[in-house]
Design a protein around this nucleic acid. Structure first.
Lengths: 331, 331
DNA sequence: TTGTATGCGTTATCAG
DNA sequence: CTGATAACGCATACAA
């Protein structure tokens, strides 16, 4: 309501002095500062950030693009992004794209129109991002993949999934089912690579009949698991590309009267909270969600401030967690 | 990069005409419009929203305050808030308060400094909100409680929890345990009321030994359930104030060798996705998360536009969902 | 250390 | 229908 002019008048100084007192106190004498601050309190002055941002041509906010905020893994990453951003004086604009490139485009426009200073992309949809075409604005991929161009922070999805698959093979499993996400999804691509590599290394054939596709939702896990069971070739283990599909799969298997892990082993990816509390607790890969978020913000802000990034790509360690959803193959 | 002046120059018109073409095309002749749009394309002009917002003294963004974005119920509400806001031309600033009133205060400052036009409060912490003191800016409580002052959209938490408890009583349960959230939490207060009312109506005593407090997290559900079991009075049913604590409780009970629901019935609240897929599937109360979010945005925007709200408080219907986590008391 | 004056990009008012 | 110009609130270059 009150503006800088009013404060200046009340304190008997110029607006410039008020501005300086608030932004660069070291340039103002203590006596004047006191007078200004008193006036500020008197009228309960709050600087108009809309004006300040406009003037400095910065919005001090970041867009975080996420396919679905209701996905607990993404929620974890976002939580840490928000925390770090706030700490650095930035706000985060939530962009739930629902895997719609149109919505994604709308949010890109937000930074083109200066309403945001940069974009944190948790999962790309648009060809623009796919193609890795350079944007004119600061952006960064989080939890992204090998093939991604541009700066990113991620884990080695291929390696992690390879390790998981190798583990199943080491347990004696020969017919390993796979429940994937949508195939154009970068995560899907990388994890698939790891799956196939482990199979090859283990001397096992890659049988497309053992692959069922989902979309990373619980429900799709249920469907995919059912499809796998009805395919005739009963797998003794099912590797899922995320925890939610694994949870769905377990439920479907149980509904069919199969026991997990005695009859079928099931594995997930992400280590969401429920992975630990489902029955049986899930063998999975833990991604360092907190670290990813924090690092992502830091790296984006570096770009924003014109500092060159020390490295374009930050690959973080993951953790392989064995719980009770996996067991030796029953032969 | 390019500004309105450049476009004007290129099109051979005044900046006013460019502005009008973009904001009120009906005031500009078609011929001029064409010329302007051509120039816009040529320099790939994107209006500077920072300037536009500054000029119109509106940020066109809303703050949504949530205790924890990783809570799947809140995530659901936020998803629908974001969707509706975007549809109406508003952005959503995510404010994950982590139940810290300091962080909450920081976000309140966002609207005081004009960076946000209003606040959607998913769960209050500060005394300011508790006391229901009127703010000078538009705000609205979502999923809030009876005692809340000011505009809000919610379900009747007390009634819902009463119905749930009455259901357990009707199944013959006499020793009903209760796992609460933090007691100062408004949801906790209302649900507690409902619990006590059902007990009274059913002629059952309210025994504080049967009450264990958690904090709405899975982990706290585990602890609370263990405490309940070790208290000596073994409850035959446990009503939890949300699904996550119920999931934790079920896990703890199983770990103790108890069967759910044969030995102990367990109920939740919210109907998050996992409620349906845990083992056994959870009997719970479904809140209309989507509707809540949509309505919340609509009501807040009404305040923002100076329209008086038709009603200060919108109480939405909930759904009582019986699944397999509840059974008649084993006597 | 402080004040004066200018400009940021846009919209709105007022003439023409 | 169009153009000139004055705001909006603040930050800063420059002068004092």
């Amino acid at each position: 309501m009150s503006n800088i002019r009013e404060v200046a008048r009340l304190a008997g100084v110029s607006v410039a002095t008020v501005s300086r007192t608030l932004s660069h106190p070291e340039m103002v004498s203590e006596a004047t500062q006191k007078r200004v601050m008193k006036a500020v309190d008197q009228v309960n002055y709050q600087p108009n950030m809309l004006a300040r941002n406009f003037r400095s041509a910065r919005s001090y906010s970041l867009v975080v693009l996420v396919p679905d905020i209701a996905n607990p893994f993404f929620a974890l990453v976002i939580r840490s992004i928000e925390r770090q951003a706030q700490k650095k004086g930035y706000s985060v604009l939530l962009g739930d794209t629902q895997d719609s490139s149109e919505r994604e485009q709308d949010y890109i426009r937000l930074v083109e129109t200066r309403l945001a200073d940069g974009i944190l992309q948790l999962r790309p949809i648009s060809d623009q991002f796919h193609a890795g075409s350079k944007f004119s604005f600061p952006y960064l991929h989080v939890c992204s993949t090998e093939s991604t161009d541009g700066p990113c922070v991620r884990v080695d999805n291929a390696k992690a999934f390879e390790q998981m698959t190798a583990y199943l093979i080491s347990l004696g499993h020969q017919r390993i089912g796979l429940i994937t996400g949508r195939e154009e999804n970068p995560h899907t691509v990388d994890r698939m690579k790891g799956f196939q590599k482990a199979l090859a290394d283990g001397g096992l054939p890659f049988d497309t009949n053992l692959v069922a596709s989902g979309d990373y939702s619980i429900w799709s896990g249920v469907n995919a698991a059912n499809a796998l069971c009805q395919s005739g070739i009963q797998p003794t283990a099912i590797a899922c590309m995320n925890d939610e599909m694994a949870i769905g799969a377990i439920q479907a298997l149980k509904a069919q009267g199969l026991r997990v892990p005695e009859d079928v082993s099931v594995t997930g990816f992400d280590d969401i909270s429920y992975a630990r509390y489902c029955d049986p607790p899930l063998t999975t890969i833990a991604q360092p969600a907190d670290l990813m978020g924090t690092l992502a913000v830091d790296m984006l802000l570096q770009q924003l401030n014109g500092e060159s990034l020390p490295c374009q790509e930050k690959v973080l360690p993951y953790e392989f967690i064995v719980r009770q959803s996996t067991a030796p193959a029953a032969q």
